[in-house]
Design a protein around this nucleic acid. Structure first.
Length: 441
DNA sequence: CTGGTAATAT
DNA sequence: GATATTACCA
């Protein structure tokens, strides 16, 4: 197998910070008939690998002993896409080699690199292929096993395309270069740039926006129709979620203010309880937490019950927060409250229904929660802090008539931090995502 | 064959 | 959790 002109044309991405090194590597690789792309910017290398998924068969990347970024980059690539990676480094310590091999690079070349080191780099591509082949035959075996049971519901026998190396020769006429060095398609990472292209295409196409056309308009090397379709599916689900949230907000608003005149403009900050009002309520189920900051949260069953029915499915990610924030576990509404605090701003603003709750929290607890008065004022519209804006027709007692529920919550430091930071940094950037990955020295 | 969608796998 | 893949339907 692997006859023909292999490894001629194998596509190699080379990253090295030193331009002279880069040129030298390129020259030698080309001498061995590799198709070389050079790059001396870490960010560029990352970009190429991520956004031009099926463009390379192997990557040779310089690991400067100092650059943690590179480690992160490689870790990321190694885990996200299935590409053989060779590290080049001046560091000839065993530990360094181990560290790199542990995260999945396939080889480690000590600088200075001899041309002979480069000549056989294709072996790693071959190795990957062999692994892929083995996986495939295993798959085939299990497939046969299961089909012998007679599963007539399986319509499409697995005809997935595999590496061109497998079951055949390489380097024949129309195969000017080797594609898909690995078994699987490389995973597309929809970074901001790709998302932007996608959204631009969507906008351009308007109602015509179907995977095929989006793909054309995006014009990203290596992207497939399936990739786009998958992302489109996700994109639509996001839109739906936002839409249904808005609808829910509408419902809540109408429940909050049947007469309609309650909210004054955007955000509809409507119901507020003053600390005084709350403390005047009889039968307060106050509880005390040893080291927690006591917070009185007031809400109405009417609203929360409604929300609960509509949003139960959104409560999947709150378990941890629930424990740390809330010690009144038995009440189902606790979850609703946790929800209010844990939703990302992108998905659900803290306006509408939530503001009253937040406002209550702050009012009853402003000193502890917002040691700095300025911060508190910045967090919410000042208007909601003015309990005097409370409409006469809706006195606290009228809320009590509608079944007032008071709960104690433990607001820990994490929540406070979140409250203070959320507006400034709603999301982690791509660059920060892997900040926890570090080489063990 | 292409697109949409839901379910499931990686 | 994000993407990929698959099944199935139009």
């Amino acid at each position: 197998m692997l006859t023909g002109k292999f490894p001629e044309g194998l596509r190699v991405l080379v990253y090295d910070e030193d331009f002279q090194n880069l040129i030298s590597l390129e020259k030698h690789l080309q001498y061995f008939q590799y198709k070389v792309t050079i790059c001396n910017e870490g960010a560029d290398a990352m970009h190429m690998l991520r956004n031009h998924m099926n463009t390379f068969d192997i990557a040779i990347i310089e690991a400067q002993n100092s650059a943690v970024d590179i480690f992160r980059l490689i870790s990321e690539i190694a885990s996200e896409i299935d590409l053989p990676i060779i590290i080049t480094s001046k560091d000839d310590s065993v530990q360094s080699v181990i560290n790199w091999m542990k995260i999945g690079v396939c080889d480690y070349l000590i600088k200075p690199i001899r041309p002979e080191d480069l000549r056989f780099i294709f072996k790693h591509v071959v190795k990957k292929m062999q692994v892929g082949k083995r996986v495939e035959s295993e798959e085939k075996a299990t497939a046969e096993k299961s089909s012998s049971v007679g599963d007539s519901t399986i319509r499409n026998p697995n005809k997935r395309k595999r590496s061109m190396f497998i079951d055949g020769q390489v380097g024949e006429k129309d195969q000017d270069h080797v594609r898909d060095s690995t078994t699987k398609k490389r995973r597309v990472v929809w970074d901001n740039e790709l998302k932007k292209k996608f959204l631009d295409a969507m906008e351009d196409l308007g109602p015509e926006a179907v995977p095929k056309k989006i793909l054309e308009r995006m014009n990203v090397v290596g992207m497939t129709r399936e990739n786009v379709a998958s992302h489109l599916q996700k994109h639509r689900m996001l839109l739906n979620r936002q839409k249904s949230h808005n609808e829910k907000d509408e419902k809540k608003r109408s429940l909050l203010s049947p007469q309609g005149g309650l909210h004054s403009g955007e955000g509809g900050s409507n119901i507020q309880f003053s600390t005084q009002h709350i403390s005047n309520i009889p039968h307060q189920p106050f509880r005390h937490h040893p080291d927690g900051v006591p917070v009185v949260v007031s809400t109405r069953n009417l609203l929360m019950t409604n929300q609960h029915h509509l949003q139960t499915s959104d409560f999947t990610s709150i378990e941890n927060v629930e424990e740390s924030l809330i010690f009144t576990e038995e009440d189902a509404e606790v979850s609703n409250l946790a929800f209010l605090f844990t939703q990302k701003s992108e998905e659900m603003s803290l306006s509408h229904l939530h503001e009253p709750v937040m406002a209550t929290t702050m009012l009853s607890n402003d000193n502890q929660l917002f040691p700095n008065q300025q911060q508190m004022m910045n967090f919410h519209e000042p208007s909601i802090l003015h309990t005097h804006s409370f409409p006469l027709s809706l006195t606290p007692s009228s809320f009590l008539d509608q079944k007032e529920t008071i709960m104690m919550m433990n607001v820990d430091e994490g929540l406070q931090q979140w409250l203070l930071n959320e507006q400034e940094q709603p999301n982690l950037t791509d660059e920060n995502r892997f900040s926890s990955i570090n080489p063990r020295a």
